[in-house]
Amino acid sequence: MSEGRVYKGVAGIGAAVEGEALVAHDNFSARYDLDRIKGVFSRPSHKLCGENYVGKVLILNIAKGGVATAWMLREMTDRDMAPAALILNAANPIMAQGAAFANLPLIDRFDVDITSVIKTGEHVAVDPANAIVKVL
């Protein structure tokens, strides 16, 4: 049996997925923070500015910004330019609505600061039905 670290959130949306983690304690908005055409973070003050997020399990602090993300996640998924999953300390309704519309895996509300316990580059399994993230 694997001894991988397991973290439990409160709720999840979407299907199970595995991928490489991309982590920062910064917040997240698709409109405010991303160049969605190039698939990179573009907000200069964001710690991940310049980083490619496509296919990554994106682990960030909280959902911020406006309402556009609710449409944008599906638009990004449709072009195969989306992250594999979103793992947040706290989602907001917009992030949940966008994940539900896009079928993009989302989990939030962990009993630890999830951005401090998983490192960029680690391989993780995301299980939204059970609200579990496991480091493989």
């Binding site: 409109r31 309402v67 556009a68 609710a70 449409w71 944008m72 599906r74 638009e75 998924t77 449709d78 072009r79």
Partner: peptide
């Protein structure tokens, strides 16, 4: 209802 075409993209409009 917020639905500008930049946010919708082709996927949103097709929906």
């Amino acid at each position: 209802l917020m639905a500008d075409p930049e946010s919708l993209g082709e996927a949103g409009v097709a929906f």
